[in-house]
Amino acid sequence: MLKNRIIPCLDVKNGRVVKGINFVDLKDAGDPVEQAKIYSDGGADEICFLDITASNENRKTIYHVVERTSKNCFVPLTVGGGVRSVEDINKLLNCGADKVSINTAAVQSPEVVAESSKKFGSQCIVVAIDAKKSGDKWEIFTHGGRNSTGINAIEFALKMENCGAGELLVTSMDKDGTQSGYDIELMKIISSSVNIPVIASGGVGTLDHLAEGIKSGASAVLAASIFHYGTYSVKEAKQYLASKDIPVRI
């Protein structure tokens, strides 16, 4: 039986780990490679790096981080943030990333998703959708949540599936950094709309939030703060989910 995945996410800036609260107020907290290794040894099913200020700053640091991580961690590594072109994707894959997540570029130029999934395979193309509730709909945002687009999140999810995305990483902008749980309605509606796996993200504060994320239909749950600040270990999270009869790899 396929297990539900727990994916710790490390926000990386200038080669160092930080975690944003609502995408601002950054705290420096360590070496990403060391952190990734701790997570993979602790049973993380995948590791995710998000290069948060990549759109504006020097990107070269992330390549070095990815290179070092892939020589030390033997679980899948997803890298996102500031990925603009097929060439950016190629570089990250060559450095040892297994998947690349695309956010702003997927909205501005969907052909990047189409081309890269054809060139490298859907399995390494993750489209990151940052969505915010607006009335009874969800609108997607780009540039790390700074720019509104007027685009409906569900329609965009379907479009990305058609373009060849292998997975969708869905983050609720309303919930991110609040530790009040995933936006369950959003996760439910997107995972039931598409036939590709959905990774739920944004808002985890307790282990029960992880369970709620899986029950919403997501194939994987992503969390940053609860693991990063040591509130819970990945192992504790898995044991908790197992105790709720949610299949996980232990």
């Binding site: 396929l2 297990k3 859907s122 997975e167 194939s219």
Partner: peptide, 11 residues
């Protein structure tokens, strides 16, 4: 549609 594809993860 009962099973998502790709089959991604630990089995």
């Amino acid at each position: 549609g009962k099973y998502k594809l790709p089959h991604i993860g630990w089995n």
